[in-house]
Design a protein around this nucleic acid. Structure first.
Lengths: 347, 347
DNA sequence: AAGCCGCGTGGGAGCGGTCCCACGGAGTTC
DNA sequence: GAACTCCGTGGGACCGCTCCCACGCGGCTT
């Protein structure tokens, strides 16, 4: 079929180029390029000839050659702090990644996974990402004092965050309605006849944790219930932190009959502590978590929890980023997606 | 400092090229290239001048330009079947990814995350990956009848698998000592005085599931215990599958006093079923799982489980792949890493 | 003194695309 | 029928690197 154009034993059969396609189709390189990029300025005849040649040769464009001239790489980086990699095993990450991946794939974009292993590496991340020449960056688990997003912004790299750093977040970001979710959770507890509802917060240097605390307070205020300081204990999103916070709450308010924890993992620690203290869940103390993570279904009793639309959050992040890449400024929106309460046996 | 080389309002400040570095350092392009790539054939004088120029300009090589000529992309793809994305939320994936990421980062390689959303997409994956021109591919959760690895191999794309498809796997792969892990688990149960040990298998079209079953049988044989058919029930790595398998076991052998489940998730289903049947864990029936996943710590009672060295598995996969990329054939090894039993309260 | 070696070096020739300019021919318009 | 469109087209000029060839030059031999 094909003449011996290269030595028989050539180890790496050279792949067909745009030039080869043009020659086979009997057109110029420009025309082939137009067909590939869906330009309308091509006659039906030429288009058909080119498409046939592409199919015959099994031609696939070389991304490197393309990006050399277009100055785009058609790829975006997802930055995952490794310290939080525990989170990686939470449905939170996997759900978001899934949505992101789907959203990017639809647009023909590639996803580069960048895990950051230590703090020193983190400080070099902006130049690194800039060197990789990704078209954009997605970040998760951003702390309030994190300046990496600003550095990226200064380098003119489109950036979208999962969650915001504060209430004046300049960058595009997507978050769940943490406040609303917390409100629903607490209202649910109150509606179940609970009178003394405590809360275990997340680390308050994360906006999501603050929002959940705000929602808790709001729900109590709406119900005309007092918001006592000793009903609030700080956790750090870990199980042990949840246990300690629960101990603190029980100590301050032995009359507690419900707890809203800002994460399932902390809720699970709280349940352990309650049991150790001889309280039954949910008879004596009702517990509600946040995230609807895998542990929620598996702990005893199964945990009522607030669920976030993770897949949609990921897709929305992808969309915002693509918008921002296409048109600087177009993706700088704050998107809030609704949460929903999944009621199980712990409340 | 620098003269106005481009219009003041230029939106996208052009980045310095190798040419600019050469000019500033007063050397030729070739010399700069040699310095960057660590060639020894450069005088100390030149090297110092080039390094100074690079630092001054903040030069970073353009990966696209480089890979256009080297025909390498310095990136590898990690293929994750989305159907298994549930697994993604297991420590299994996150642990492996973490190791892979660390191993690749050390070698300056990038990690492309490719999630496959449906079966149709899966059939197009080989050409897609070939089109992306990744230097290699890592695959997880490979079924025995999966031909994608062979397709990649035929396309001369270095490929390394997590787990093998059968006992004659031609490709490089890394796996935990599933058989040994299962043996330890069952021996542990027997050592605890259990007499009638059943097992809940994974889907037997996966080699890992078969190996764990083999280990179970081996341990029983070694102890001189009979390996009865009604002591083996098939699950599918899901919780519901675990429940059903447990039901089947209890029905066939009401005298059962221990179960080894080939995954924690199935074990958790088994525990639920046991409780529903009025059996206490571990008093009446001891349970051991596999994976030491996040649910193992959180179910009630906390689950004894077999742990795999995930981080090391990931790192080893990266290493094999890098070897294979550097030297075709050099990464086609079968690496088996040891497992270890984490004893908790369920046994 | 003439020849040879080998080291460090400069720079031409690509790699495989996109962009854009110029050009031929068919279809208007006056 | 000349002038003017407009549309599809071909191909030159890059994009920023690496590869490799050829060259100059100092130090050895003979």
């Amino acid at each position: 079929m094909s003449p011996a154009e290269h030595p028989p034993g050539a180890p790496d059969a050279r792949r067909p180029t745009l030039n080869a396609v043009a020659a086979l189709a009997g057109v110029g390189r420009g025309t082939v390029s137009r067909v590939i990029n869906g330009s309308p300025k091509v006659s039906d005849r030429s288009r058909a000839a080119v498409e046939r040649a592409i199919a015959e040769l099994g031609y696939v464009p070389n991304p490197a050659a393309r990006s050399l001239v277009t100055r785009r790489t058609d790829s975006v980086a997802l930055v995952v702090p490794d310290a939080q990699t525990r989170l990686f095993s939470e449905p939170y990450f996997s759900g978001i990644i899934r949505g992101v991946s789907a959203g990017l794939a639809d647009a023909g974009m590639r996803l580069l996974l960048v895990m950051v292993h230590d703090a020193k590496e983190y400080t070099r991340l902006a130049p690194y990402l800039s060197g990789q020449r990704v078209d954009g960056v997605l970040m998760v688990a951003v702390h309030s004092d994190d300046t990496l997003p600003d550095q990226l912004d200064a380098l003119a790299i489109p950036t979208v965050l999962a969650g915001r750093r504060g209430d004046r977040e300049p960058l595009g970001h997507v978050r769940a309605d943490n406040r609303g979710g917390a409100e629903i959770a607490v209202r649910h507890l109150l509606a179940g006849g609970r009178r003394t509802v405590g809360t275990i917060t997340g680390p308050l240097d994360m906006e999501a944790a603050r929002e959940r605390l705000d929602g808790y307070r709001q729900a109590l205020r709406d119900a005309g219930a007092p918001v006592a300081d000793e009903l609030v204990a700080n956790g750090d999103f870990t199980e042990e932190g949840g246990r300690e916070a629960m101990r603190e709450l029980l100590c301050g308010r032995p009359d507690l009959d419900a707890v809203f924890a800002a994460s399932d993992v902390m809720a699970s620690g709280a349940v352990l502590e309650l049991r150790a203290a001889g309280r039954r869940v949910p008879e004596d103390v009702a517990v509600v978590g946040f995230d609807d993570s895998i542990v929620a279904r598996h702990i005893d009793p199964p945990l009522t929890s607030v669920r976030q639309p993770l897949d949609e959050m990921g897709r929305t992040m992808a969309r915002l980023l693509l918008d921002e890449i296409a048109d600087r400024g177009a993706g700088r929106h704050a998107v809030v997606l609704p949460t929903r309460l999944v009621v199980r046996e712990s409340s």
